[in-house]
Amino acid sequence: MQYPFAEKYDASDYIILNSNINPFGTSPLALKAISENLSKINMYPSREEHEKVKNQIVTKMKREYINVNEKQIVLGNGSDEVIEFFIKFGIRKFKRPKVIVGDKTFAFYEYCARSYGLDVIKVPLKNFGYDTEKIIETAKKNSPCLIMICNPINPTGKIIPKKELEDFINEIPQDSFLLSDEAYFEFAFYLNCKDWRGDDYRSALQLNIKRPVFISRTFSKAYGLAGLRLGYLICDFSDEIERHISPPFNVNYLAIKAGEKAILDIDFLQKTVENNYNGLRILESIEGAIPSWANFVLIKVKKKDIYNELKNNRILVRNMEQYGFEGFIRVSVGKIEEIEIFQKIFRKILNQ
């Protein structure tokens, strides 16, 4: 399969709402760290520098009421790489060729699994969310080595509510590994604290789980480091993954330095998630919007060519036909003024 990349434009007069990136750019603390360390990029990042970032992640997660230790964390070149670590680890352990994913969810799961020769079983979504009962039924029937979900779900923005998630994880066959991709955790965590739609969202790490679970997270979204590529995997097999799967210098020096400081910039994170909360309220007022817990909204549109008409008005959104959502666009939460411009032009196009 070909990976469905977002359309890229360098022109500064475009409003970019198609890649779920941070509309405020990058943390000033991270930018300062990058500037201060540019002269050192001839150096390989040390193990001690890796450990500093891991320690900062542990401290950050304590603020989210999650207890992990640095020995459970594996750093990667973006969350894509740690998802690949998970796939390679599952192949080593179970040597079975089947993987289960949700149909029309994050394309990288299928893309990466197929690159290792695995058979991908896609379970259809139900009302834009996971059909957890069907996934369990499919797993018991097919004995997959791996099951991969994202929570919140890309591209629908839905979540698996906490009780359903806990039951789902505990009912999956014990001889399959589960990955819960939490790339949009920071946004959902804040929305949950704001009582967005009730107290319904939890990380899998916050639940009463009776089996090993793998969690992937990223610095790309809330922390604005998409271009540097920094992600991490949390699991009880991190030592084995680091010794046998992860390359020794997989994360670049500037990503390490920027990540260490970005995670300390609580003001920048707060600004980002507050803007997202307010932006979602605007986007979800649009007819056809699917309620979201992430930093984007999936919208069913009545006008077939609205993607190109928005592009002609210097606004880029994601055309979701390539994901199998015909008649839908996905709109990232930009700055409030960008969202207001989008809303105005969107409604103008529909009324023409």
Rank of each mutant, 00 (worst) to 15 (best):
M1R: 10
Q2A: 13
Y9E: 15
Y14D: 11
N18P: 12
I21W: 09
N22V: 06
F24M: 08
P28V: 07
E36S: 14
Y44I: 12
P45T: 05
K52P: 00
K52L: 11
N55W: 03
K60S: 11
K62T: 07
R63G: 11
N67V: 07
V68Y: 02
V68T: 01
S79V: 01
E81T: 02
F85Y: 15
F85K: 05
G90A: 03
I91W: 02
K93W: 10
D103I: 01
R114W: 04
K122N: 05
Y130G: 01
Y130V: 00
T132C: 15
E133P: 00
A139K: 04
K140F: 03
K140R: 14
K141Y: 08
S143Y: 11
C145H: 04
L146G: 09
K158Q: 15
I160P: 02
P161T: 01
E164M: 05
N170C: 09
Q174H: 04
S180I: 15
E186F: 08
F187P: 00
Y190D: 12
L191D: 14
G198K: 09
R202E: 11
I209W: 07
R211K: 11
I215D: 08
I215V: 11
T218W: 06
K221C: 03
L225Q: 13
R229W: 07
C235A: 04
D239F: 08
E240S: 15
E240C: 08
E242F: 05
P248A: 07
F249N: 13
V251Y: 08
I256A: 12
K257L: 10
K257Y: 09
E260P: 07
K271T: 13
R281C: 15
R281Y: 12
L283W: 06
L283A: 06
L283C: 12
G288A: 06
S292W: 03
S292N: 00
W293G: 06
V297E: 09
L298E: 08
K300C: 00
K300V: 00
V301Y: 00
D305E: 12
Y307M: 01
N308R: 02
K311T: 04
I315Q: 12
L316Y: 09
M320P: 09
G327W: 10
F328W: 01
R330H: 02
K335D: 13
E340L: 14
Q343M: 12
K344Q: 14
F346K: 03
R347S: 13
L350C: 13
L350M: 14
N351M: 10
Q352T: 13
